[in-house]
């Protein structure tokens, strides 16, 4: 019975939020949703380049919405993490950087964008710690500090920052307890986090849970 109510409640919420968007701009909203939906589907199938292209096309039309470019950056950065080829990584991260730069100029008060920039930096560091670690560690921490100042209760900010710090602490043989506590806090925040819109970023919980396991 509770399940049913929950399912129903969820349905209503989805419906309401969908309607809310439809009401503002009926055809456009549906077209946007369709496009975004298609991109997410491609991304889900592992077609990163195609997904990134669809997001790019949407971004070219929806110049007042930061989400399409955000996802161009996210798709390419996530893809870059598994890559060893320098040329490939250069292309992926340049794509991500270009897309993110477009949104950063428009809005310097969006914590999600700072987290995204920090992730691009992290991808560079992971690729070549000797060269990039020294250069990018400081700026990356500064990005997280900025993000935290803007959105102290955003679970992605708390989690990503903690995860980045754990990397350094392990190398230095320092205690990772404070970061682990932050990860626990992030998981709590994920539970109550409400994305601003249906496509606003909401990722991170699954990775946080894995990180939490590694803490123990």
């Amino acid at each position: 019975m509770t399940k049913l109510i929950t399912a129903f409640a969820l349905f209503v919420i989805t419906l309401l939020s969908a309607q809310g968007q439809v009401a503002t701009n009926e055809t456009k909203a549906s077209k946007f949703e369709q496009g975004m939906g298609k991109a997410f589907a491609l991304w889900g199938e592992g077609k990163n380049a195609e997904a990134s292209d669809v997001f790019e096309r949407i971004a070219a039309v929806e110049t007042t919405n930061w989400l399409p470019n955000y996802y161009v950056a996210l798709v390419n950065t996530t893809a870059a993490f598994g890559t060893k080829d320098k040329e490939k990584i250069n292309i992926l991260l340049s794509k991500a950087q270009n897309a993110l730069d477009v949104e950063m100029i428009k809005d310097q008060n969006n914590a999600e964008l700072y987290v995204m920039q920090a992730m691009i930096n992290t991808a560079w560091i992971v690729f070549d710690p000797m060269t990039n670690g020294q250069k990018l560690s400081g700026p990356t921490m500064e990005l997280y500090a900025n993000a935290e100042a803007i959105a102290p209760n955003n679970p992605r900010v708390i989690f990503s920052k903690a995860e980045f710090e754990i990397g350094g602490a392990k190398f230095w043989g320092q205690d990772t307890k404070p970061m682990c506590a932050q990860i626990d806090k992030a998981i709590e925040l994920f539970a109550t986090f409400k994305p601003e819109s249906p496509f606003a970023p909401k990722w991170g919980l699954d990775r946080a849970l894995i990180a939490q396991k590694n803490c123990k």
Partner: peptide, 15 residues
Amino acid sequence: SGANVFIEGSYDGAT
């Protein structure tokens, strides 16, 4: 391969 081809001002396109 991997080029983004689309109609300007629309979402329509392909890779």
